[in-house]
Computed example of a mutant assay.
Amino acid sequence: MNIRNYNAKEAIVFRKTKEPFGGLSNMASGYALYINEVIIPSSEHLYQAMRYPTNPEIQFEIINQDNAMKAKMISNKYKAQYSRPDWEKIQIKVMRWVLEIKLAQNWDKFSAILKETQNKSIVEYATDNKIWGAKPINNDELVGVNALGRLLMELREKYISENNRIFCVNPPDVPALLLYNQHIDIICDDMIIDYHNESLLEDSLV
Rank of each mutant, 00 (worst) to 15 (best):
A126L: 00
R4K: 13
Y180V: 10
V98N: 02
N55T: 09
D185W: 10
D190F: 13
N36S: 06
K102P: 04
M1S: 15
N139L: 01
D203I: 15
L200C: 04
R165F: 07
I184R: 00
R165V: 14
H196N: 15
L177V: 11
P20V: 05
D190K: 06
E61N: 03
A71Y: 10
K109I: 04
T54D: 13
Y47A: 06
P172G: 02
I101D: 12
W97A: 08
I101G: 02
L99E: 08
E124Q: 11
A147V: 08
I137G: 09
I113S: 11
Y78Q: 01
D203R: 15
D185Y: 12
Q182A: 11
M1T: 08
P41E: 02
L24E: 03
K115H: 14
Y195R: 15
N2Q: 14
N163V: 12
K9I: 01
S29Q: 06
V94T: 10
N5D: 06
G30M: 03
S43R: 01
N55K: 11
V38C: 06
N55Y: 10
A11Q: 03
Q81H: 13
A112E: 07
S111I: 00
T54M: 12
K16P: 06
I122Q: 06
E116M: 00
R156V: 03
N129F: 06
K89E: 12
K72T: 07
K130G: 06
A8G: 08
D185C: 05
W107A: 05
I39D: 03
A8C: 10
S29N: 07
P53Y: 08
L103T: 05
Q81P: 04
D140T: 14
A112W: 02
F14G: 09
K70A: 14
W107H: 02
A126K: 05
N146F: 01
K102Q: 04
S43D: 08
L152Q: 00
A126H: 09
N138P: 09
P41D: 02
F14N: 14
I131F: 07
H183N: 14
Q105C: 05
Y52I: 01
P172M: 07
I187C: 09
L155F: 03
T127S: 11
I90T: 06
D190A: 01
I122N: 08
I92E: 13
G23T: 12
A32C: 03
E162L: 08
N146L: 01
N5Y: 15
K9E: 15
V94I: 15
Q118G: 08
L177D: 09
N64E: 05
G144H: 08
